[in-house]
Simulated assay, not measured.
Amino acid sequence: MIHNIDIKKNAVETLELEAAAIQQLTKTIDKDFVDVVNQILNLQGRVIVTGIGKSAIIAQKMVATLNSTGTPAIFMHAADAIHGDLGIIQPADLIIALSKSGNTPEIKVLVPFLKQTGNTLVAIVGNLNSFLATQADYILNTTVEREACPNNLAPTTSTTAQLAMGDALAVALQTCRQFSDRDFAKYHPGGALGKQLYLRVADLADNNGKPTLSPDANIREVIITITKHRLGATAVMHADEIVGIITDGDIRRMLEKYEDLTGLTAGDIMTRAPKTIARQELAVEALHRMRQDNIAQLLVVEDNRYQGIIHLQDLLKEGII
Rank of each mutant, 00 (worst) to 15 (best):
I40P: 01
L43K: 13
Q44T: 08
G45T: 06
I48V: 15
V49H: 04
T50G: 09
T50H: 00
I52A: 15
G53M: 08
K54V: 05
S55F: 10
A56G: 15
I57Y: 15
I57K: 10
I58T: 14
A59L: 12
A59S: 15
A59F: 12
K61I: 02
K61R: 11
K61M: 02
M62H: 02
V63F: 06
T65R: 12
T65W: 11
G70F: 12
T71L: 11
P72D: 08
P72S: 11
P72G: 11
M76A: 13
H77A: 07
A79E: 08
A81K: 00
A81R: 01
I82N: 00
H83L: 09
H83V: 09
G84F: 07
L86W: 06
P91F: 05
P91R: 09
A92N: 14
A92F: 04
A92K: 14
D93Y: 08
L94C: 15
L94S: 14
I95V: 15
I96W: 02
A97L: 11
L98V: 06
L98G: 03
S99I: 05
S99Q: 07
S101C: 04
T104M: 04
T104D: 08
E106A: 08
I107M: 14
I107Y: 11
K108V: 14
V109S: 12
V111S: 06
P112F: 12
L114D: 05
L114C: 10
T117Q: 13
G118S: 10
L121H: 12
L121V: 14
V122K: 08
A123R: 09
A123H: 07
A123V: 11
A123E: 05
I124D: 02
I124G: 03
V125H: 01
N127D: 15
N129P: 00
